[in-house]
């Protein structure tokens, strides 16, 4: 069941579009903001609310890489794996993250703190390599800086 708060927030989005189905992505974002990810049950509930089929909603949800259809940790690490970060050595950063966290791409730490995913170019190429932790951007990464950054997140 979607909460009253979620439904209210989704309905607020309806005003921005000529019909409510157009708020599909916004609705998925609302649910994810509250729950970190979007479950099968949430997709069904959204379908009823937006008067769309479950399949339609899921086809949108699974298209976009920043909508999570599987549980994720408290903080999602998005590590840039695009070309400037490749030249500047993101692979060493990745190796260090894997070692420090004991996880690979797509996995979540046992304590549920972090999920690690690759992401295309973060648009901060003059300070490569770069990554995001939750909403925060970190640049000019070195393996040494990683542990210091991770320690900030409880």
């Amino acid at each position: 069941m979607l909460t009253a708060e979620e439904i209210h927030e989704i309905q607020e989005e309806f005003h921005l579009y000529p019909y409510k189905q157009a708020a599909c992505i916004e609705a998925l974002k609302v649910v994810q903001n509250h729950r970190r990810w979007v479950s099968d049950e949430n997709v069904k509930d959204l379908a009823a609310l937006l008067e769309m089929s479950v399949e339609e909603i899921d086809s949108v949800a699974t298209f976009y890489n920043l909508i999570y259809r599987q549980p994720v940790g408290k903080y999602v690490i998005l590590l840039c794996d695009s070309v400037s970060c490749y030249i500047m050595g993101f692979e060493a950063v990745l190796a260090h993250l894997e070692k420090s966290l004991g996880i690979k791409y797509g996995e979540t730490t046992k304590d549920g703190r972090f999920t690690m995913l690759p992401v295309p170019c973060l648009g901060t190429c003059d300070h490569a390599p770069a990554m995001m932790v939750g909403k925060d951007l970190f640049r000019d990464l070195t393996p040494e800086k990683i542990d210091e950054i991770l320690n900030k997140y409880e």
Partner: peptide, 24 residues
């Protein structure tokens, strides 16, 4: 409007589909 990923959204007609709540 804040998007939810995918490079193809930069293509203008794909972007419009995304703004309409659809696959880009």
């Amino acid at each position: 409007h804040t998007s939810v990923g995918r490079y193809i959204c930069g293509e203008e007609t794909a972007l419009l589909n995304s703004l309409e709540g659809k696959r880009a």
